[in-house]
Design a binder for these strands. Sequence first.
DNA 1: ACTATGTACTTAGTTATACTATGTATTTTA
DNA 2: TAAAATACATAGTATAACTAAGTACATAGT
Lengths: 110, 110
Amino acid sequence: MNDEFIHKWQSQVKKGTLSFIVLLVLSERELYGYELIEKIKDLTKIDIAEGTLYPLMNRLKEDNLLDSKWVEQETGIPRKYYFLTKQGKLTLKQMKLQWINLQQVITKLM
Amino acid sequence: MNDEFIHKWQSQVKKGTLSFIVLLVLSERELYGYELIEKIKDLTKIDIAEGTLYPLMNRLKEDNLLDSKWVEQETGIPRKYYFLTKQGKLTLKQMKLQWINLQQVITKLM
DNA sequence: ACTATGTACTTAGTTATACTATGTATTTTA
DNA sequence: TAAAATACATAGTATAACTAAGTACATAGT
């Protein structure tokens, strides 16, 4: 039917929800980038391109919501683990409130 | 605190939700642009810039989700009323399903 | 030994969309 | 008569997801 519109729409919905989802997932435990992509795909069925995730992580770091550390592996490439900063935790709380609010508004309209 | 991040985030969340909200509101009855802005502000507390709404309406028309008609007023500037096309109604149904799905996923993460 | 696939991170360029600012025009209110 | 509200429109900017490509190592299959 109008699959193309729906597809574009999905992509636009991600702008905003992706950062929220990343912060929510990281609030449980720290993860490295590739693992985040897998985890989010598993939890939400949302596919995140690598070219989307890594720049997103850098923005969240610049905004002081996340910090990261390199962890050497016994074998293979080192992994960059991301975790919430204090400010990240506070901001996530606010985002949750805003999200709940938006949700209620839309539910009412539906 | 991190008001600037939250503000930018809100703006990003709109990309995607705005078109959804517009379609939801129009599914109840037809409205003209300026009225839509007022109605949505009233219902959702979301402020939509005119420079955001009118281009959005044109995109939705190009995508055949909406159509519009000019209605002369006895006094004042004519109004352009927007209404859902058949395809718009079908697409909105799909969007609702997708939204519910996303909502459930995020609720679980929260 | 070679190839494909999976893991892991990065960046350049494109596209879509909200925002700012500005412009036009009419009507109502102070 | 000036300001504010009503009503639509567009050009330019910023943001963020996507595509595509690249680097590097490990492992499984042939």
